[in-house]
Deep mutational scan, measured.
Amino acid sequence: ERVRARYDYEAQNEDELSFKKGDIITVLEKDDGWWKGRNGKEGLFPSNYVEELE
């Protein structure tokens, strides 16, 4: 599954994923509120910062 970033997100910890608004992220795992994904790097990000691609 792929999602698009709705906002910029700056990683707060080294296991998190940074991205810019409009970036496409491949979702690897979904957990409550935090998803694991890849966009060149791999890490956790808040699920409310992304939207599913149509």
Score class of each variant (00 low, 15 high):
residue 26 T to S: 09
residue 39 N to T: 12
residue 19 F to T: 00
residue 13 N to A: 10
residue 21 K to R: 11
residue 9 Y to G: 03
residue 6 R to Y: 04
residue 21 K to V: 11
residue 31 D to E: 14
residue 52 E to V: 13
residue 29 E to W: 15
residue 12 Q to H: 09
residue 37 G to K: 01
residue 14 E to K: 11
residue 20 K to T: 07
residue 38 R to P: 00
residue 53 L to H: 07
residue 22 G to N: 07
residue 53 L to W: 12
residue 49 Y to W: 08
residue 16 E to N: 04
residue 18 S to F: 03
residue 49 Y to M: 12
residue 27 V to I: 12
residue 30 K to N: 04
residue 25 I to Y: 01
residue 37 G to D: 00
residue 16 E to Q: 14
residue 3 V to P: 02
residue 42 E to D: 10
residue 19 F to H: 00
residue 19 F to V: 01
residue 44 L to W: 15
residue 40 G to L: 09
residue 33 G to V: 14
residue 1 E to R: 14
residue 39 N to I: 14
residue 11 A to K: 06
residue 36 K to E: 00
residue 31 D to I: 15
residue 9 Y to A: 02
residue 52 E to Q: 14
residue 42 E to Q: 09
residue 16 E to G: 08
residue 49 Y to V: 08
residue 33 G to Q: 13
residue 26 T to C: 11
residue 45 F to S: 01
residue 40 G to W: 12
residue 15 D to Y: 15
residue 50 V to L: 03
residue 44 L to T: 11
residue 31 D to A: 15
residue 26 T to L: 13
residue 51 E to V: 08
residue 35 W to D: 00
residue 17 L to K: 02
residue 49 Y to T: 07
residue 5 A to M: 04
residue 5 A to W: 00
residue 38 R to E: 08
residue 16 E to C: 06
residue 40 G to F: 10
residue 28 L to W: 05
residue 15 D to F: 15
residue 8 D to Q: 05
residue 9 Y to D: 00
residue 28 L to E: 04
residue 54 E to Q: 13
residue 32 D to F: 09
residue 18 S to Y: 03
residue 25 I to G: 01
residue 52 E to S: 14
residue 25 I to W: 00
residue 14 E to H: 10
residue 13 N to H: 11
residue 11 A to V: 01
residue 28 L to C: 07
residue 32 D to N: 15
residue 24 I to N: 02
residue 16 E to H: 10
residue 7 Y to N: 07
residue 52 E to A: 15
residue 40 G to P: 04
residue 24 I to V: 10
residue 15 D to L: 14
residue 10 E to P: 03
residue 9 Y to T: 04
residue 46 P to T: 01
residue 27 V to S: 01
residue 37 G to V: 03
residue 37 G to T: 01
residue 36 K to W: 13
residue 33 G to A: 12
residue 2 R to G: 05
residue 32 D to G: 15
residue 43 G to D: 02
residue 13 N to V: 06
residue 38 R to M: 09
residue 46 P to F: 05
residue 20 K to I: 07
residue 14 E to I: 11
residue 47 S to K: 11
residue 38 R to A: 09
residue 36 K to N: 05
residue 5 A to Y: 01
residue 50 V to R: 00
residue 51 E to D: 09
residue 8 D to W: 05
residue 24 I to G: 02
residue 12 Q to S: 09
residue 35 W to K: 00
residue 4 R to C: 08
residue 52 E to K: 12
residue 54 E to S: 13
residue 47 S to I: 08
residue 53 L to D: 07
residue 6 R to V: 14
residue 20 K to S: 09
residue 17 L to C: 04
residue 6 R to E: 04
residue 41 K to F: 10
residue 52 E to N: 12
residue 53 L to G: 06
residue 3 V to K: 05
residue 40 G to A: 09
residue 41 K to Q: 11
residue 20 K to G: 05
